[in-house]
């Protein structure tokens, strides 16, 4: 019997290694897999390359991972926010590398990674600082830049419910990067509010089919609010 459920976040991230590339879902804190990140901090893996839309908020979640100095490089679209002081200080001190990517190119590069493309031409960013040094092409009268896929060793994402085969559904705008990151990592680990019996998720409404998910970690709400 296939059961992808892993009861403890600690066990779920036990094989994240030094130097790994780790995608972390979320837009701000919506969809950020807080308990998996806490377990990753506890695990102690360092020199990580992190892919996320932002660069941490406040002192928890991704910001805490940065503060613990486990991150060598971050690939993101919008690091600077009112509460990104942990990242801001590391960046100003030259202690973290930043690869800034327009948000849609970030999403498309992740999708390309998951879908097996070698590269793609995108109009976004053409003629800007963020296209410097990149190949360009005029296709049908429009200018494009060449962008390459992003793949990861691990993706840590947050969904609402999952089953033992790894099928996932999400909640509201916490969905954001979860479904696309799930496709682009060697090992996708999803924390969910509830693991439900096989067959209770409507097959017409499953957002992430289980083939993209290696581990499903139930995080009870009581546990979540205590964290």
């Amino acid at each position: 019997m296939i059961d992808k459920t892993v009861v403890s976040p600690t066990a779920a991230v036990a094989d994240v290694f030094d130097g790994a590339t780790v995608m972390i879902g979320g837009f701000g804190t919506a969809g950020m897999p807080g308990e998996l990140i806490d377990a990753l901090i506890e695990r102690g893996a360092s020199d990580l390359t992190i892919v996320n839309n932002n660069a941490g908020n406040g002192e928890t979640g991704l910001a805490a991972l940065l503060k613990a100095r486990r991150v060598k490089k971050i690939i993101c679209s919008f690091p600077r926010q009112t509460d990104s002081h942990v990242f801001d200080a590391l960046y100003r001190a030259g202690e973290i590398e930043l690869e800034l990517v327009p948000q849609g190119n970030l999403a498309a590069r992740i999708q390309a990674g998951g879908a097996g493309f070698g590269a793609f031409f995108t109009p976004t960013g053409y003629g800007t600082l963020l296209a410097e040094g990149k190949e360009t092409r005029n296709i049908g009268g429009r200018n494009y830049i060449l962008e390459y896929p992003i793949r990861a060793d691990f993706a840590l994402i947050k969904a609402d419910r999952g089953d033992r085969w790894g099928n996932l559904v999400y909640r509201k705008t916490a969905r954001n990067f979860g479904p696309i990151m799930a496709t682009a990592a060697q090992c996708t680990i999803a924390q969910v509010r509830d693991v439900v019996p096989l067959g209770s998720l409507d097959p017409e409404a499953i957002v992430t089919p289980g083939i993209f998910v290696r581990r499903v970690v139930p995080i009870r709400v009581a546990q979540r609010s205590a964290a």
């Binding site: 679209s77 919008f78 327009p102 849609g104 976004t124 960013g125 053409y126 800007t128 963020l130």
Partner: peptide, 15 residues
């Protein structure tokens, strides 16, 4: 000394 952030601005601008 500015920390750059782009978000979805470039995608919206061309799209």
């Amino acid at each position: 000394d500015a920390i750059p952030a782009v978000g979805g601005a470039m995608d919206l601008a061309i799209g």
